[in-house]
Amino acid sequence: MLNYTFQWRQAFNALPDMLWGALVSLQIAVLSMVIGVIFALFLALGRQSNNKVFHSFSTGWVELARNTPGLFQIYMMYFGLGSLGILLNSYVALLAGIAFNNAGYLAETFRGGLRAIPFTQTRAARSLGMSAPQAFCLIVLPQMFRIVFYPLTNQMVWSLLMTSLGVTVGLNTDLTGVTQDLNARTFRTFEFFAIAGVIFYAMAKIITLSSRLFASRLFRY
């Protein structure tokens, strides 16, 4: 028989701390996306390169990121590198693990976006006097980002949710870490994690709806 007594007042009193933790989670997600996008561009080009070393390195990164658990990747950043004498704090290890994962997934997304753009676009740009880098940055990249915009949004949401794994490497300043600390002090597991779940859901929906609004204005033509 259910005899649990809910005590929401204590949980709501801790809401400011949880919202501050949510900002830390969002910060990690945004930074991991920025880093992931930069590396993903190079990996996507590497996957299409004729240079065997560049191609093999890019393929290895993508295969490892896409075919191993995100938790494993974060553990390797924290415990694995730590055993080799490369010590990362919990924040940096979580950020690096998520960025590594993002780069692997986005590399394949970008590669698909690049292959969807006809080569005649580059040829036309070159015929107008643009250099190869100029044609890529000014003609190809804007079209690619338009193609992959919605997958980027999905990856951003995924990055936000992955920040919850930071608690496994001792991070206690993000939303999950703050919630776990509050739970350990009060034993009000349901109340605190229910509120944390609502906050995660709200942030994910805000990201999704904001991207739709942005796309409706950016891609009207």
Score class of each variant (00 low, 15 high):
A132K: 06
R126S: 06
Q180R: 07
M33E: 08
T153S: 09
V24C: 09
F145V: 05
Y150G: 03
G46S: 13
G104M: 12
V24H: 10
A116V: 00
I74N: 01
W158D: 11
A135Q: 03
L64V: 15
F136P: 09
I199T: 13
F187I: 13
A204C: 09
A132F: 08
T122P: 13
R111T: 05
S127P: 11
I195R: 02
S159Q: 02
V37E: 01
N183P: 03
G113T: 07
Y75G: 11
A124N: 13
A40D: 03
M130C: 14
M18S: 12
N51Y: 01
T179E: 05
R115P: 09
F110D: 03
G113V: 01
A215W: 00
A11I: 05
W8G: 14
S25T: 00
C137A: 15
S159K: 06
V34M: 14
L88P: 04
I206V: 13
F193M: 13
N50D: 12
L106F: 10
I74K: 01
F54W: 12
V198K: 03
P142E: 13
L87K: 12
N101I: 07
L2A: 08
F79R: 02
A11C: 12
M77P: 01
Y75I: 05
V37A: 11
A99D: 03
L213K: 09
M144A: 13
M76E: 09
N13C: 14
A96G: 09
T189E: 04
A124W: 10
V34L: 15
T168S: 10
A96Y: 03
A184V: 09
M77V: 11
E63N: 12
D174K: 08
L81E: 04
S210C: 11
A196H: 02
L171F: 06
D181Q: 15
L160E: 00
K205Q: 15
F42T: 11
D181M: 15
M33G: 04
S25K: 04
L31H: 01
I139W: 00
V140N: 05
W8E: 13
Q155F: 10
F100W: 10
P69R: 07
L81I: 09
L213E: 13
V198A: 14
Q10S: 15
L213V: 14
R115D: 10
M33L: 14
L23K: 04
L128I: 08
P151F: 10
M1Q: 06
S25P: 12
E63G: 05
G36D: 00
F200Y: 15
G36P: 02
V148T: 13
L2G: 02
Y91C: 05
F192D: 02
M1N: 14
Q134K: 08
F187G: 04
Q155S: 07
L106D: 00
M33S: 07
P133I: 03
L165K: 04
R217Q: 04
S56V: 08
L141N: 08
L41G: 09
I98T: 02
L87I: 13
S49K: 05
G70H: 08
G113R: 06
Y75M: 11
R66M: 14
A135N: 06
A14I: 08
T176M: 11
N3L: 07
R212I: 14
G177N: 10
P133L: 05
S83T: 15
A96E: 07
